[in-house]
Amino acid sequence: MNLHIAAQINSFLAALVLLTAFGMLVQKRVYGLIHLFAWQGFFLSLNTAIVGFVADRHHLYISSVLTLSLKVFLLPYILHVLIHRLKIRKEVETIVNIPTTMMIGIALVIFSYHLTAPVRELSNLVTRSTIAVALATVMLGLLMMITRKHAVTQIIGFLALENGLFFAATSATYGMPLVVELGVALDVLIAAFIFGIFFFHINRTFDSLDVEQMARLKEGD
């Protein structure tokens, strides 16, 4: 596979990652969100494998498989089970309306493009143009956590944010050392479990997963 085509596939996958990030930002249904998250993980793992192949870094294959198993199968499955157990049926409530969220999202993409311009100038990797997308994915994940009320969507936002970081590592420096990545993967997994337990507790205490309810914990009301 020559470098030119690899770069094209890489940027196309980056575009798909960005698309899923935006998809999650505007998706209203919880199951839809989880599917989108799984797709994002899938594109990410594919991209990692391709970058690994092009750059001849074999540890990236391991990261790729790890991403695939963890973010495409295990975490979505856990979330599925969680939602099933918690009997969440409703549409996800947003704080800011969706067209506005989209506009903010677009602004964030432009901002991250502006921000990563110096890095792009210095780097000579095949993947340099996707750094902006990676940073944008991080920001969009954060934006999603801000604009959503529901605790489940917040963890998905957090996981999407982590996806963005992972993507940034791949595209800026061909990935972090394997040890670090294994550690991060484990952290994410544990975070997911902790969140799961946390959900049950919130749900039991407030009869709802709306995080705005937690405002009631504030003292002196």
Binding site: A15, L18, F22, P99, M102, I106, S129
Partner: peptide, 22 residues
């Protein structure tokens, strides 16, 4: 508005990725 907003978003992302990725 959401439907057509998504269309607009796609088109804008297309334009952005033209500059960012190509």
């Amino acid at each position: 508005t959401e439907f057509l907003g998504s269309a607009f978003l796609m088109a804008t992302l297309g334009m952005l990725s033209f500059f960012i990725l190509e």
